[in-house]
Each structure stands twice: as structure tokens, then as C-alpha cells.
Computed example of a mutant assay.
Amino acid sequence: MPGYRVASGTSDPLELGRANRSPYPKGTIEMQTPAFQALGLDLTPFFPGTLNLSIAPQRFALHSPRYTFRNVHWIDGYPAEDFSFSPCHVIFHGSTYESLIYYPHPETKIGHFQNDSLIEVIAPLIKELKYGDRVDLAIDPSEVALIGVESL
């Protein structure tokens, strides 16, 4: 699904509207990579952006993510944030890509409202993948829970 495109740094300020211009001179993932690398998580093998995968009508919750980093200060002029990551696999056209679920904690991300039916994934560049394509996502159920509509 299309996202805001601030993670990859490809957002169009005119498309976002004057009030919603991205405050990030590069994409957020590229800007955050050195902070996570210093904390022991190397994001350099991945494309510096996110895949936005809809699992609607289901929702997801991270209950024991492999990595959680608290109080990450990655950009001047903004408060520190908390982030969690859980290893996963994106499967597309018979190929499997080692990836990470990327979860900026909403309680520390001012002005960032993400639907809990949308999973953000950091993956290697998958050249053939385009908006609207279907992928399979293999998750670790000991780290990530899928919640069906019946439990709402």
C-alpha cells in the first residue's frame, strides 16, 4: 500500500500539501540507520524505506520483539523515540527476502498515526514489487500476534 513516503525520502512536498511537508532532509530510515547501527542493529542490507503491508481486517501487535530501542534520538529538534523490530520474511513470486518488521512506537512518535492493520517492513529492494501486489509475510508468532476481527 502507498504510505507517506517519508521513510524512503521520496515524498513529494506538493503532493503532501504545504502543511504536511516532510521535515526530514533524507528518508527517515537512512537517517535512523546510524543510530540503530550504534545500538547493534545493522539496517544497511535493506532498502532505506518501508513496505507498507495491509493485513486488514486483521490487526497486529508486537508482544516480544527481538529488538526494542528506547529513547533513540536520531534527528535534531525532535524528541527521542522508541522503536521495535521483529525479523520476518517477505515472500514474493517464489523468492524469500529476510526482512524486519519496523515499529516506531506511536506513543513516542508525535504526529504519526499508523493504522494497526498496516505492517511496516524493512526489506531488501524487491525490484518487481509494486503497489497493489500481494506478498506473503512470515512472522515469528512468539514475537508478533495477529488479531482477527472476531476479537475486536
Rank of each mutant, 00 (worst) to 15 (best):
residue 13 P to M: 04
residue 103 Y to R: 06
residue 25 P to R: 12
residue 33 T to Y: 00
residue 69 F to E: 02
residue 50 T to I: 08
residue 83 F to D: 00
residue 18 R to N: 13
residue 105 H to A: 13
residue 84 S to I: 02
residue 7 A to E: 13
residue 56 A to E: 14
residue 36 F to D: 05
residue 30 E to Y: 13
residue 66 R to W: 09
residue 54 S to E: 04
residue 11 S to R: 02
residue 28 T to L: 10
residue 33 T to W: 00
residue 68 T to D: 04
residue 102 Y to H: 12
residue 25 P to K: 13
residue 110 I to M: 13
residue 80 A to T: 08
residue 54 S to M: 07
residue 55 I to H: 07
residue 72 V to N: 04
residue 10 T to P: 07
residue 67 Y to N: 10
residue 9 G to F: 04
residue 10 T to V: 12
residue 79 P to F: 05
residue 63 H to A: 08
residue 103 Y to H: 15
residue 101 I to Q: 00
residue 23 P to K: 15
residue 90 V to S: 00
residue 91 I to W: 06
residue 11 S to A: 15
residue 44 T to P: 06
residue 54 S to D: 07
residue 17 G to Y: 08
residue 87 P to K: 02
residue 103 Y to I: 02
residue 60 F to C: 07
residue 71 N to E: 14
residue 43 L to T: 01
residue 16 L to V: 11
residue 75 I to T: 12
residue 100 L to C: 06
residue 40 G to F: 05
residue 11 S to H: 14
residue 67 Y to E: 07
residue 81 E to I: 08
residue 75 I to W: 09
residue 39 L to V: 10
residue 43 L to C: 05
residue 55 I to C: 11
residue 65 P to K: 01
residue 63 H to M: 11
residue 23 P to F: 03
residue 53 L to Y: 02
residue 27 G to E: 01
residue 61 A to G: 10
residue 9 G to Y: 02
residue 46 F to K: 00
residue 34 P to R: 04
residue 101 I to A: 00
residue 110 I to W: 10
residue 32 Q to G: 10
residue 108 T to H: 06
residue 49 G to T: 06
residue 32 Q to I: 11
residue 36 F to H: 09
residue 26 K to N: 13
residue 53 L to I: 15
residue 24 Y to D: 04
residue 33 T to N: 03
residue 77 G to L: 07
residue 88 C to V: 13
residue 98 E to Q: 14
residue 59 R to P: 03
residue 9 G to Q: 03
residue 82 D to F: 03
residue 69 F to D: 01
residue 53 L to V: 15
residue 93 H to S: 13
residue 6 V to D: 14
residue 59 R to S: 14
residue 84 S to V: 02
residue 86 S to V: 03
residue 42 D to H: 09
residue 16 L to C: 14
residue 110 I to F: 11
residue 63 H to K: 12
residue 106 P to E: 11
residue 13 P to Y: 06
residue 103 Y to E: 12
residue 87 P to L: 07
residue 88 C to N: 00
residue 74 W to Q: 08
residue 12 D to R: 08
residue 7 A to C: 15
residue 20 N to T: 09
residue 42 D to R: 07
residue 29 I to Y: 01
residue 58 Q to K: 12
residue 53 L to D: 01
residue 104 P to L: 03
residue 53 L to M: 10
residue 34 P to T: 01
residue 8 S to H: 05
residue 14 L to H: 12
residue 13 P to S: 13
residue 77 G to V: 04
residue 51 L to V: 01
residue 85 F to T: 00
residue 56 A to K: 15
residue 55 I to A: 12
residue 104 P to H: 06
residue 44 T to V: 06
residue 81 E to L: 09
residue 88 C to L: 03
residue 26 K to E: 14
residue 47 F to K: 11
residue 31 M to F: 05
